[in-house]
Amino acid sequence: EVTIKANLIFANGSTQTAEFKGTFEKATSEAYAYADTLKKDNGEYTVDVADKGYTLNAKFAG
């Protein structure tokens, strides 16, 4: 089991951190699915991958 950390950075400057656990593939998929649920209210996002894929920095356009 691994933990994927998602740093969510919103256009207004606020941030949120979420963690997803499971296999690498499952946890990564859940992190992206969570970011997708936030698109409606926060706009499209881009992701910078860090820490060999164990940290995802998602920046929302607003």
Rank of each mutant, 00 (worst) to 15 (best):
E1C: 15
E1P: 10
E1T: 12
E1Q: 13
E1L: 14
E1K: 09
E1N: 11
E1G: 08
E1W: 15
E1A: 10
V2A: 06
V2D: 03
V2G: 03
V2H: 07
T3H: 05
T3E: 04
T3S: 08
T3L: 09
T3K: 07
I4T: 01
I4W: 00
I4Q: 00
K5P: 01
A6P: 00
A6G: 03
A6C: 15
N7H: 12
N7L: 11
N7T: 10
N7K: 08
L8Q: 01
I9A: 06
I9Q: 08
I9V: 11
I9T: 11
I9R: 08
F10S: 02
F10R: 03
F10L: 10
F10V: 00
A11F: 09
A11L: 08
A11K: 09
N12H: 06
N12Q: 05
N12E: 05
G13C: 10
G13N: 06
G13H: 06
G13E: 04
S14W: 13
S14K: 14
S14C: 15
T15Y: 12
T15Q: 10
T15K: 12
T15E: 07
T15G: 07
Q16P: 00
Q16L: 14
Q16N: 08
Q16A: 12
T17C: 13
T17W: 10
T17V: 13
T17R: 10
T17M: 10
A18W: 13
A18N: 07
A18V: 15
A18I: 15
E19W: 15
E19A: 09
E19L: 14
E19P: 02
E19F: 15
E19D: 07
F20C: 03
F20G: 00
F20A: 00
F20I: 00
F20N: 00
K21E: 05
K21I: 11
K21A: 07
K21Q: 09
T23S: 11
T23A: 07
F24E: 03
F24S: 04
F24H: 06
E25C: 13
E25K: 09
E25A: 12
E25M: 10
K26D: 11
K26G: 11
K26P: 00
A27C: 05
A27K: 00
A27E: 01
T28D: 02
T28K: 07
T28G: 01
T28W: 15
S29H: 11
E30L: 14
E30H: 07
A31S: 03
A31Y: 03
Y32H: 06
Y32V: 06
A33M: 09
A33H: 08
A33W: 07
A33K: 11
Y34N: 01
Y34E: 00
Y34C: 06
Y34D: 00
A35W: 14
A35D: 00
A35I: 15
A35G: 02
D36N: 10
D36A: 08
D36I: 04
D36Q: 07
D36H: 10
D36W: 02
D36T: 05
T37G: 12
T37D: 09
L38T: 01
L38H: 13
L38D: 00
L38G: 04
K39C: 08
K39L: 06
K39M: 11
K40C: 12
K40R: 12
K40H: 11
K40F: 11
K40N: 10
K40P: 11
D41A: 13
D41W: 13
D41T: 13
N42V: 05
N42Q: 13
N42P: 02
N42L: 09
N42K: 10
N42C: 15
G43Y: 02
G43D: 02
G43S: 02
G43M: 03
E44D: 12
Y45F: 08
Y45Q: 01
Y45S: 01
Y45R: 02
T46N: 07
T46M: 09
T46K: 09
V47S: 05
V47G: 02
V47D: 01
V47T: 07
V47R: 01
V47K: 03
V47N: 01
V47A: 06
V47C: 06
D48R: 10
D48H: 12
V49H: 07
V49E: 07
V49F: 12
V49A: 07
A50H: 10
A50N: 08
A50G: 10
A50F: 11
D51P: 00
D51M: 04
D51Q: 04
K52G: 15
K52T: 07
G53H: 03
G53D: 04
Y54I: 04
Y54E: 04
Y54S: 04
T55M: 06
T55R: 03
T55N: 03
T55S: 05
L56E: 01
L56I: 15
L56P: 00
L56G: 02
N57R: 05
N57M: 07
N57F: 11
N57I: 14
A58F: 15
A58H: 06
A58P: 00
K59A: 08
K59H: 14
K59G: 04
K59P: 03
K59D: 04
F60E: 01
F60Q: 03
F60M: 00
F60C: 04
F60G: 00
A61V: 13
A61M: 14
A61T: 13
A61D: 11
A61R: 12
A61L: 13
A61H: 13
G62V: 07
G62H: 07
G62R: 06
G62D: 07
G62E: 06
G62F: 08
G62N: 08
